[in-house]
Design a protein around this nucleic acid. Structure first.
Lengths: 331, 331
DNA sequence: ATCCTAAATAAAAACGTTTTTATAATTATC
DNA sequence: GATAATTATAAAAACGTTTTTATTTAGGAT
């Protein structure tokens, strides 16, 4: 049995398709008796409306689209989980699109498959955003601050978080700190690094005394970098590491332990993100926790605001907080 | 500027919409010169096709839909990540739909928004599956074995995995084992429990000597259950726990440690799933690892087979393997 | 030039809906 | 018991595409 259309229902109920549409969509003009007949026919045929037809005609999808290049890692599922709940509360469906390449991404973004988009995808550049805005598709960016018509962003205050984390290490008495950098072109990495530098300078210390290693946001890369560093004897070695994220912090700790030292006795280590592992790892990881849930909720609220009021978008910057655990201690 | 349609492109290029369609979709009948004109017009107008129109007319979406009630937890993102890659390799887009209630779910599933579905959602019951099959929407189920027309399933061999895990504990010399049960209505829980029971009986032991606690697949619940159990002095206490999943295993270990005992010296603990935390936890967790990546790949392959050959579906059961780490030891 | 064929383009139909407009049926008013 | 007003239903248009069918144009052969 092929999928039944509204025509089939109309035929079976001996009625026109417009009446079926009205009956099914609760437009209160159809006689109870006919409505019952239609409902029964629809049920009998297992009818469910074709969403393409529906959305094409009505011009709206009642869907929020999340566009991302990867769902890997705890950050994403926490984020998506809250977005899902917030969207449901506002009676929007949620569809997460994982596009493999840039054209597929833009086609799906510009293809009117959702009323508005939440974007966490580094492949979307400024020109793409212009297209979006030009076609009046409201979007909320989560990976970098933007603003413009139909465009908002909700990002974390990476600079300040890093500044505070560095201050905390300095306060514990660490004078020489190693920074485990992430990807070069990454906004968070850049912000965190400048936050780190600013805190050092504000404390009257010299950047010359600090060490920058390549952690690349990965456990293995961080492990290798720290291992190599520890192997080269220095007159005045670093006593703490500020890692670009939790994974590289874990890599650093493993390298430190592998070299026969202890955390936090010999070296303090601090990460970013507060991923799930952070509180299960031994030692539990001091880290900066981002308000992921809040970001997700705000993204939905803001998108719906753009959708309904058609106002100019806005930037929002969320502060994170330092979660002190067992991987940091006094020098 | 409103979104440009194929009509606008046609008008600007001084050509009919069918020619535009042909030019844009690479149908090789349009003169190079006109094609260039059309492409230029499309570019100039920032044209991108409306997918609803496209899909409505062509009757296919080139999309695989993943339907689930939750993306929480490492299992899902690993699964979705592999599904995404497998789909991309076969030139299918991926759309993950998180529906909040049953009607929304079924509407979206039956709404022709994708060519085929991969379903991981306990809310989809047998009647729903009949509807699906009746409307010729191919689907692959991941949370329980089914078969039928247009329907396949790829599940883990929970029974056997549990049987092997229990055998391993017995082999280590544990004669009394506690089972930390999950949700009552959960298939995995049921399979795992019967696997456990069968292994006990096969070894000639009595189920009377075993203890069943409610772990509910959660860390906290497991913690509480084990804490309570340990507090009640028994003549012949359990020396090992088989937990329904890794989270409850971790809860159990924490409770054991909190009561002043050691793992694996005093109690061995074994989990299921091999979540990310399992190898970071202290002690690292012995667990049964499911081939999640394989499940994802197979799901896509099988769905595409259903899609293209229109054959009767099939069941597939994947074996997991025991990952021995530090949370288990000889009695 | 005339006709034929092939190539290129255009026109029209179709997909499944909702929405707008038109018609039919019922009820109310006098 | 006719007409107006209201209510219920039907018909037609529209959404943006692709696809099928029709028409025009160009190029050869006669």
């Amino acid at each position: 049995m092929k999928k039944a259309t509204i025509k089939d229902v109309a035929q079976l109920a001996k009625v026109s398709i417009s009446t079926v549409s009205n009956a099914l969509n609760g437009v209160n003009v159809v006689k109870p008796q006919t409505k019952a007949r239609i409902l029964s026919a629809a049920h009998q045929l297992n009818y469910s409306p074709n969403l393409m037809g529906k959305q094409l005609r009505s011009g709206q999808t009642n869907m929020i689209g999340v566009f991302t290049d990867s769902v890997a890692g705890p950050y994403f599922y926490q984020l998506i989980e809250t977005i899902s709940q917030a969207a449901a509360a506002k009676n929007y469906g949620l569809s997460v699109t994982l596009a493999n390449n840039h054209t597929a991404l833009m086609n799906s973004l510009l293809g009117n498959t959702c009323d508005g988009a939440i974007i966490f995808d580094h492949r979307v550049d400024d020109r793409d955003l212009e297209h979006l805005a030009g076609q009046e598709i409201p979007a909320v960016m989560l990976d970098r601050p933007v603003s413009g018509d139909h465009l908002s962003s909700i990002v974390f205050d990476s600079f300040n978080e890093s500044y505070l984390a560095t201050q905390y290490l300095l306060q514990l008495g660490h004078q020489r700190i190693g920074y485990l950098a992430g990807y070069d072109n990454n906004r968070d990495n850049h912000e965190r690094f400048t936050g780190f530098q600013r805190a050092i300078l504000s404390a009257g210390l010299s950047l010359e005394d600090m060490v920058v290693l390549k952690g690349l946001f990965e456990e293995q890369a961080a492990y290798d970098a720290v291992k190599t560093y520890l192997a080269t004897e220095t007159a005045q070695p670093v006593t703490a590491f500020l890692a670009g994220n939790d994974l590289s912090a874990i890599g650093a700790i493993k390298a430190i332990q592998a070299a026969g030292h202890q955390v936090p006795k010999d070296y303090s280590v601090i990460g970013f993100d507060d991923i799930e592992i952070a509180s299960y790892f031994d030692p539990t990881l001091t880290t900066i926790r981002n308000p992921i849930a809040k970001q997700g909720q705000l993204a939905v609220t803001e998108l719906i605001r753009l959708l309904t009021t058609k106002q100019w978008g806005q930037q929002q910057v969320l502060p994170g907080d330092l979660k002190i655990r067992a991987s940091t201690g006094k020098r």
